[in-house]
């Protein structure tokens, strides 16, 4: 039996009449990278928002280290979230703060470190992520790739056990995509962090994933290692992997 950190069981969620999640089952394994693959707007973001408690499911369970996330009391959830890092698609950096203040933010809020210790820690993280001379800059002055890296720096500041990446390579040039991919691999290997990545970037998926799960029609329709995915006979997965407009995936708009 694999060592599961997060277990999602039969998760359902609708917004009005629109059914977004229709019985999702998924297991996230410790110290591995799980990639959730799917089309834009298929509910990937909705799924991860459930894991951190930003959304409540209509039905189903989410277990983190065996504890029920859905009905967790507020103070317990706050403690749990300190073990999570989240990298938002837009970076979600605080635009009224400098890069240094952004990365220091979780440390200021959650630790008793002194100003000097925090400064040192921020420098160390920036150095590890290959960022130089950006401490005093504001997020608006940074490029897309820089923003993602600073956001990753903020996410790892508290040394979390799990990091969730929301479309980390979307909107970046190929070189920057590869840099981010390498950083995700580094995060997993050097810091021993469990990574969850949601993306529709196939090249990146095969580079970073230990396990891939494909979300389609509100369910996980295929789950396995990258090799298993390459040899799949599932037509939906094949259409997606081979970037075909024709196939079982129906485009409404």
């Amino acid at each position: 039996m694999e060592d599961a950190v997060i277990v999602i069981e039969d998760l359902h969620k609708s917004f009005g009449d629109v059914k977004v999640l229709d019985g999702v089952n998924l297991t996230v394994i410790r110290h591995k990278t799980t990639v959730i693959l799917g089309r834009s707007g298929c509910g990937k973001t909705v799924l991860i928002k459930h894991i951190v408690g930003l959304l409540k499911p209509d039905k189903g369970r989410i277990l983190y280290e065996g504890r029920d996330v859905v009905n967790m009391p507020t103070h317990e959830r706050k403690e749990m979230l300190k073990e999570f890092g989240m990298l938002y698609q837009s970076g979600a950096l605080f635009d009224s703060m400098t890069v240094e203040e952004n990365i220091a933010f979780p440390l200021v809020e959650h630790t008793k470190m002194t100003k000097a210790e925090i400064k040192e820690r921020v420098q160390e993280i920036l150095h590890r992520l290959g960022l130089k001379d950006v401490e005093g800059k504001y997020p608006a002055e940074l490029s897309g790739g820089m923003k993602k890296r600073v956001a990753l720096a903020r996410a790892v500041a508290l040394e979390p056990k799990v990091i969730i990446f929301d479309e980390p390579t979307t909107g970046l040039d190929p070189v920057m995509c590869d840099i981010i991919d390498n950083l995700i691999i580094k995060t997993r290997d050097e810091l021993g962090i469990t990574c969850i990545v949601i993306t529709h970037d196939i090249q990146s998926t095969f580079k970073i994933a230990d396990k891939i799960a494909m979300l389609y029609g509100g369910r996980i329709i295929e789950e396995g290692t990258p090799d298993e995915f390459r040899n799949t006979s599932n037509e939906v997965v094949l259409q997606f992997l081979h970037r075909k407009a024709e196939g079982p995936i129906k485009i409404m708009d």
């Binding site: 928002k49 951190v52 408690g53 930003l54 507020t74 959830r77 706050k78 403690e79 749990m80 979230l81 300190k82 999570f84 989240m86 938002y88 698609q89 837009s90 979600a92 950096l93 605080f94 635009d95 009224s96 933010f105 979780p106 809020e109 959650h110």
Partner: peptide, 21 residues
Amino acid sequence: AEIGTMRISEQIDAIFTMGID
């Protein structure tokens, strides 16, 4: 305007997921 911008740029979600109300 400021809080609205924080909302749509996911900064409020980011604060929540850091375990801060």
